[in-house]
Nucleic acid binder design. Sequence first.
DNA 1: TCTTTTCGCTACCTTGGGTATCGATACCTG
DNA 2: CAGGTATCGATACCCAAGGTAGCGAAAAGA
Lengths: 191, 191
Amino acid sequence: MTSTTSARPPGRPRSGVNAAVFAATLSTVEELGYARATVDRIAAAAGIAKSTVYRRWPSKGELIVDCLLDAFGPAPLTGSSRAELMTSTIRWVAAKIGEPGVGDAFAGVFSDAVSDPALREILSTRLQDPYRLALQEALDEPENRVLFFIDVVVGVLLHRMGMTGEPMVEADVDALVDMVLPHFTDGRGKM
Amino acid sequence: MTSTTSARPPGRPRSGVNAAVFAATLSTVEELGYARATVDRIAAAAGIAKSTVYRRWPSKGELIVDCLLDAFGPAPLTGSSRAELMTSTIRWVAAKIGEPGVGDAFAGVFSDAVSDPALREILSTRLQDPYRLALQEALDEPENRVLFFIDVVVGVLLHRMGMTGEPMVEADVDALVDMVLPHFTDGRGKM
DNA sequence: TCTTTTCGCTACCTTGGGTATCGATACCTG
DNA sequence: CAGGTATCGATACCCAAGGTAGCGAAAAGA
């Protein structure tokens, strides 16, 4: 039992600085914006060397994706009805994107992905797919409908963030809920 | 009449290559993606020197904004009812973003603006405001509602473009119309 | 022909993502 | 305690791309 599997690889173990790097990433992005939050600066803020960052993440984009995964965490799919479930999901995404640095980092890596197919694939697979699958399960909707739901919620919040530099105010999040819910609940025989 | 105003400045006149630059920008962005569509390559595709580009536009971002303004043109605010007007607007934006290079360029400059407040101001003032004002007039809605409308339509279309690399298919544009229209027409005493 | 302005060209600066190297260090095993 | 192994920090480096500067050539009008 201790030999075939990894009983722990030899050599100096990795120091547990991932959490510090994630925190440094968000605070640096919040302070300087996405483009000026260079890997050098993030590493300095985390108190490590740039080479250590590139030993753990192959690119800045993947670092950001991992950082966002850490920031979002698992989706709290709460609510007994479809309407409650969708409402809480929308508010949860809005709140997360409103957290310091998260919205900027999200919009930044999203835009990098536009001209980087490899990063787009990672963004889609590692970040979007888990939530999409969980929502498909919880809402009992086909893939294309859930993808449309994600396009709407994330797209609107990111557009507002990108255009104004500020997260969407609560009144507009309310409007978003009011707009989305009827489309996904009315006249479809699902409650 | 010929003296006080500009009777034409002396010196060599500017060659009329703006249209060629816009066309070269879109085709280069379509071929290589936003980030790899460098100013050097765009200039080469237009048959001019990079320095000529920077003589006319102070930055790549402003070049793209001008290019998008040229590509979109004035909004065709057609339709006799509010519903028709909003429908045609949504379909017009979707069609434009689906044109070769336009969606990529839009998403690219949008993401650049995330970490560049100056570019964000230009994007908001030069590109968004004209259409926002025209829509406020045509729809007789307050500014915040029109801004929300723009966030929804553009945000969704750009998110789909950024996540998949392809413009939104017609069936989903239909769903977008179906979702947006009731929110802006039902129970509000406006037709 | 002279003046003025834009042109293409080239060389250059700076920033930032990403790589390579190297001595130092931390951990486990014998 | 000695040896092996893998990570660490530091530094130097490569390359692409946005943007600038300077120059002689070309296109107009006067």
